[in-house]
Simulated scan of single mutants.
Amino acid sequence: MRNQVVSRDEWLKARVALLEEEKELTRRSDAVALRRQELPWVRIDKAYRFDTDEGAASLGDLFRGRSQLIVYHFMFGPDFTAGCPSCSAIADGFNGFAIHLAHHDVMLWAVSRAPLAKLEAYKRRMGWTFPWASSFGSDFNADFSASITEKQQREGGFEYNYRPAAPLTSRAAAGPVAEYAATTGADAATYMRERPGMSAFALEDGAVYHTYSSYSRGLDGLWGMYQWLDRAPKGRNEQGLWWRRHDEYERA
């Protein structure tokens, strides 16, 4: 046991002190959210095309009558046989709140580079119902820092999370990364050419605008299980990559 054991009164005093810090964090979070909403917009003039369960679609079509669109850049490359386990853990929460977003003028989509047939098969396996589009053959993922080429991976010259990224090294492609890559049917290099992230867009007077994107630890708030773990007695308590796809735990 790593924590001190105290009386209820002593615990309450410590808890109230922490509450003040939590309130400050909430106020700071509200202020940062407002800053996100105040960011300038960038008009999207490129004609991106996607494959969806309703046929070919433009970026504007993904709004489906709403004025706001959120895209989760799901790591599922053309050569994968299954989606990234981490992205899958995040996406497990989408079914529950996508309908609420849709009724609040916000459309949520996952977008991946794998062909639609692969995405649809994996979606059935996972029991998901949220919309998922294929950007196969499109520049969409690359333009929004969600995928890179073999040359970029080998030589560098690309950015991720708004910082220059280094070429792939054998060390970076070893260990847990290689293990997780294997679960997608890809080698580590192929796996790491896909990048997780989210992007937000607005539709106004027929024009589409890019309003926000976030990557890496910026996705923590979307990863529902971490919000619960951060409030559990032992916190995240992580040693390596411990999570799996939700249908794989019993087999582990």
Rank of each mutant, 00 (worst) to 15 (best):
G137K: 05
A142Y: 14
A142N: 14
N161V: 07
Y191I: 04
M198A: 14
V208Y: 04
W132N: 10
A165I: 01
T183S: 14
G157I: 02
E155S: 04
S170E: 14
G156L: 03
N161D: 15
A202R: 15
S170W: 10
F158V: 01
L203C: 05
F140P: 01
S170K: 15
G206D: 03
T184H: 02
S199C: 11
P164Q: 11
T149V: 12
M192Y: 06
S147Q: 15
G185P: 05
A142P: 09
E159F: 10
G137R: 04
T211I: 15
L203Q: 10
A133F: 15
T183H: 06
T183P: 08
S170Y: 10
A165R: 00
F144D: 07
M192N: 08
H210P: 08
E179Q: 12
G156M: 00
T149N: 10
S135R: 12
E179H: 05
I148D: 00
G175M: 09
A186I: 00
S199P: 11
L168E: 12
V177M: 04
G156R: 00
P164V: 09
T169C: 01
V177P: 02
A186H: 00
G185I: 09
Y160R: 03
E179C: 02
M192F: 12
D187R: 06
A142G: 13
T211V: 15
R154N: 00
E204S: 08
F158N: 01
M198D: 07
H210V: 10
W132E: 13
V208A: 09
R195M: 13
E159P: 03
A188Q: 00
A166T: 12
F144P: 05
P167R: 10
A173C: 13
D205L: 09
S134T: 15
F136V: 10
